[in-house]
């Protein structure tokens, strides 16, 4: 092996302090594997297993460059434990803060659940392709969520809420296992009497106090009166749910390319490299996680 290396070595950098001349976008994209510090600004318990965390990126340039679409996700790092992909549950209309709804289910999320306001985590992103809100504008929206699937679609729901006059009729069908598992119930309760949102909550296992629907989300969906020509579907839930929900949407004659679904996979790098989130010929992390039904039909193993 030779030691007489004359050509100048190249270097890969993951600097703590970026040079002052860099813009926030350059900081985010320079080495997109590099997480940026974010402070926990609020923690709210949603259920026994899920908490809503609010974060604020500490660097002003990064914070301003971080602009997401409803349906996109971030990679959250707890150094020494690891990194996990989590969908952003806040709307881009809420500026300067990022909300993540996190279920306690693995080492990173377990550790995150033990953290407190003021603690620092690492965030990088936003990654992926979200819901096509520009295309959806002016149309009726039918949101169907199951369980933790409410997290990514809440970003869309809140976006619609903040731009309410830009959208037509909005119907939300949200299924949970038990009444205690319903997330964001206070937010939804507040809307219960509003005329501009139709909210249908359903549970698999009702308790004595439950006065909503019982059973799978597809049952109340079947009773809905839908104008297929100008309706967009937005679906997220456990893997088994998609096929049944999409079937009902197709029965209602919603076009293949108006049914949007957010898929769950293990997006490890977020950048279309590591391969973990591949579905057929696509990467969930950059081609999705939101795909329309036509695209999904063309991807081997998507549903």
């Amino acid at each position: 092996m030779t030691d007489s290396v004359g050509a100048s070595p190249l270097a890969v950098r993951a600097l703590t302090e970026a040079p002052h001349v860099m813009t926030g976008q350059e900081m985010l994209m320079g080495n997109a594997y590099r997480p940026w510090p974010a402070r926990i600004t609020s923690i709210r318990e949603l259920t026994a297993h899920e908490k809503l965390f609010e974060f604020r990126l500490t660097d002003e340039r990064v914070r301003e460059a971080f602009v997401h679409e409803p349906g996109q996700f971030v990679e959250l790092s707890l150094f020494g434990v690891g990194e996990v992909p989590i969908s952003i549950t806040s709307s881009p209309t809420k500026q300067g803060f990022i909300e993540l709804c996190v279920r306690r289910t693995g080492t990173v999320t377990e550790q995150l659940h033990r953290m407190q306001c003021g603690d620092i985590v690492g965030l990088r992103g936003p990654f992926g392709r979200g819901f096509p809100v520009e295309q959806m504008r002016g149309n009726d929206i039918l949101v169907v969520a199951g369980g933790l699937g409410i997290a990514p679609v809440r970003s869309l729901i809140n976006y619609i809420h903040d731009n309410r006059s830009d959208f037509g009729k909005v119907t939300i069908v949200y299924g949970s296992r038990t009444p205690a598992d319903i997330m964001f119930r206070d937010q939804f309760e507040m809307w219960r009497h509003r005329k501009d949102f139709d909210l249908i909550l359903t549970v698999d296992e009702p308790d004595d106090t439950w006065d909503g629907e019982v059973g799978v989300v597809t049952e109340p969906m079947k009773k809905l009166d839908i104008n297929p020509a100008n309706t967009f579907g937005a679906v997220c839930g456990p893997p088994v749910m998609y096929r049944f929900v999409v079937e009902v949407m197709r029965e209602k004659n919603i076009s293949y390319d108006h049914i949007y679904m957010s898929f769950e996979r293990h997006m490890k790098c977020g950048m279309g490299k590591c391969g973990h989130c591949q579905i057929g010929h696509q990467y969930c992390c950059i081609d999705g996680p939101v795909f329309n039904y036509w695209e999904a039909k063309n991807i081997q193993g998507s549903m």
């Binding site: 890969v12 950098r13 600097l15 150094f79 020494g80 620092i120 985590v121």
Partner: peptide, 18 residues
């Protein structure tokens, strides 16, 4: 490289041999 207590990335340059 990182500092796990502070949850921060540390200065790090990896040189690549020509």
């Amino acid at each position: 490289r990182f500092d796990a207590r502070a949850n921060l990335v540390q200065d790090f340059v990896q040189e690549v041999k020509p």
